[in-house]
Nucleic acid binder design. Structure first.
Length: 580
DNA sequence: GCCGTTTTCGGCCCGACTGTTTTCAGTCG
């Protein structure tokens, strides 16, 4: 069982307990444990029978350790089974609807045996809700719309889509005089791969108490907003046509820092921070950090003020996940995170020779425009026939062509000749070693699944990286495949072996194929594995996407020295694995 | 259920908005 499954089971149990109106603090413990496990870099299944080691994870105590052991042995836990006798699993889905919390789910079950979204839809159609207490016209309409939305697009939005929507809205808001500072908060600011909804924070003279009404009215009139969800004194919520929900908060200038801190989250980071505040005799809210005894404000204007008053260093938003960043900030040992400008080259690109959209020269110009010192052209090999993948002869000819293009550019950028070879079902590669030996950069990637089990997939990758010419393991988790086809892999085993062999693992920065999540990247770092970030570009515009991947690196606490393509060109080449 | 310069019990984060409530519970972030 992998960590995600443990976390899911515990989170489900927490939801069920909530429906059962269990002890709120017990529920929180299950939630905390689920989050701790989800972000844990050790594989729990390896230590599931060792309560001592389990309890070293913050949020895991005696009871949770027993739960984990039960889950490992039986695939579930007794409490969850017991609750599932009383309730239905489909109720968990019901809680995803806006306005539906545990109390309402429990009530509807008691009153009219509604257990799923389909049940609810039918009940609304049959007007069964109309006579129930607390279900007015508006409430019912909200649920009806919620069901519609849920069916249309349940899920989160990729970060680049969310950011594009944010940029447009921010440009609109900027046009109103007196709105000076406009920033996204929430998971967008934290650089999450996906964003559930958009939080935009606004301040300036137009947000002063006597003027804010006009600014709220202006915000409400944002043309792409199709569905006004809430409108308060300083908050406007609406939905965009894409289904993305947006919250705009208009804040007084003197509490902006507190609000930015608060709405950036994450939730667990904030909870921990507020506990810390209490111990110091303060209370922290979205308005200020204030003394408990007399209510006087200690800090509120900037985030730096607030973290400073709590006795800790300012923490980069990407780190705010309650993964030890607060302790590190207190000890002044926060990492100096890698930055976009540290990246000196992108070494995974395709051209018109296979399935890319641009020529070698066009890719080179785009890379130069981004300020890169080097790049690698790594077109597909023959097994990807649908992309016109190259056979040995063609690959060598293409490499010669790449080197010629480099010469013609007169030293404006270094262009490495490379290839992205395909890993076959048995783990062999589809080009000859003699061909690979001629390449500066060899990326080995999985592109097809053959209905493999987890063990088979792992064996396949392990064999591929034994090939002495493979320098980079391309998209190691194949998360694009994973989402489509339920691909599974023992990633820790592969990364461990890659570290031993000196093979680098690649993290793709392109938003719809971010390969490694922050937890995977942190594991790679802890195992001493080299990491490379690329965009897997099939178009010059893809090169722009590097920033989203860098945010994942930052979320994983990676520093410049942890990422291979922050090195100058020649050092980068010599840092790649050498054939024995 | 977790946790401990209030340590084996008694705490456990904070406030706004909504709808239908005539004083507040439930939901949300």
């Amino acid at each position: 069982m992998d960590n995600r499954t443990y976390a899911q089971l515990l989170a489900e149990t927490a939801d069920l307990l909530e429906i059962d109106s269990g002890d709120a603090f017990r529920i929180r413990s299950y939630r905390r444990a689920a989050e701790a496990i989800d972000s844990c870099t050790i594989q729990l299944s390896e230590i599931a029978s060792d309560p001592k080691r389990l309890q070293e994870i913050p949020g895991i105590g005696k009871g949770m350790a027993a739960n984990i052991r039960d889950m490992e042995q039986t695939g579930t836990l007794p409490l969850r089974e017991e609750l599932l006798k009383k309730y239905r699993p489909s109720m968990l889905q019901l809680m995803r609807l806006p306005g539906m919390g545990p109390k309402t789910v429990a009530f509807l079950w008691e009153a009219i045996q509604v257990a799923s979204i389909d049940d609810l839809e039918a009940a609304i159609a049959a007007e069964k809700l109309d006579d129930l207490p607390r279900f007015g016209k508006k409430q019912i309409e909200k649920l009806r719309k919620g069901i519609e939305e849920y069916k249309k697009n349940s899920g989160r939005f990729l970060i680049d889509d969310a950011e594009e929507a944010a940029e447009k809205l921010m440009a609109y808001l900027r046009a109103l005089p007196g709105l000076d500072v406009i920033e996204p908060a929430g998971s967008l600011r934290r650089g999450r791969e996906t964003v559930g909804d958009l939080d935009i924070l606004v301040t300036g003279p137009a947000c002063a108490a006597d003027k804010v009404d006009a600014a709220v009215e202006y915000t409400v009139k944002y043309p792409p907003a199709i569905d006004l969800l809430a409108k308060g004194q300083n908050k406007v919520s609406f939905r965009l046509r894409s289904g993305l929900q947006v919250d705009v908060r208009l804040l007084p200038e003197d509490s902006y820092g507190a609000a930015l801190q608060y709405f950036t989250g994450s939730k667990m980071h904030n909870v921990t921070l507020r506990q810390r505040a209490l111990k110091k005799g303060y209370t922290l809210s979205e308005y200020s950090l204030a003394r408990i005894d007399d209510g006087s404000v200690v800090a509120s204007r900037t985030e730096q003020d607030i973290y400073g008053a709590l006795g800790i260093d300012w923490i980069a938003p990407e780190l705010r996940e309650n993964n030890g960043e607060i302790e590190a900030a207190e000890a002044h040992t926060l990492p100096r995170l890698v930055e976009l400008k540290d990246i000196r080259g992108d070494v995974h690109m395709h051209t018109t020779k296979t399935d890319g959209r641009n020529t070698i020269e066009e890719m080179a110009e785009a890379a130069i425009a981004r300020g890169y010192e080097y790049m690698a052209i790594t077109d597909h090999s023959k097994n990807l026939a649908m992309t016109f993948g190259l056979n040995d002869e063609e690959a060598l000819a293409h490499a010669a062509r790449i080197r010629q293009a480099e010469a013609e550019l007169g030293g404006r950028i270094r262009i490495f000749a490379g290839i992205e070879v395909d890993i076959l079902s048995d783990g062999a590669l589809d080009l000859a070693d003699e061909t690979l030996a001629q390449m500066d950069v060899v990326i080995a990637s999985v592109h097809s699944l053959f209905n493999m089990t987890e063990d088979e997939m792992t064996a396949r990758m392990l064999r591929a990286i034994e090939n002495p010419y493979v320098k980079i393991l391309g998209h190691p988790t194949g998360r694009l495949l994973l989402r489509r086809e339920g691909y599974r892999l023992n990633l820790p085993a592969v990364v461990r072996r890659a570290a031993e062999l000196g093979v680098a693992v690649e993290h793709n920065a392109y938003p719809d194929r971010l390969d490694l999540c922050d937890r995977d990247l942190r594991m790679a770092k802890e195992m001493g594995c080299k990491v490379i970030i690329n965009t897997d570009s099939h178009h010059t515009s893809h090169l722009e996407k590097m920033r989203y991947g860098v945010e994942q690196l930052r979320r994983a606490w990676l520093e410049k020295a942890d990422v291979l393509n922050t090195l100058p060109a020649m050092e980068f080449l010599s840092a790649l694995r050498k054939p024995a």
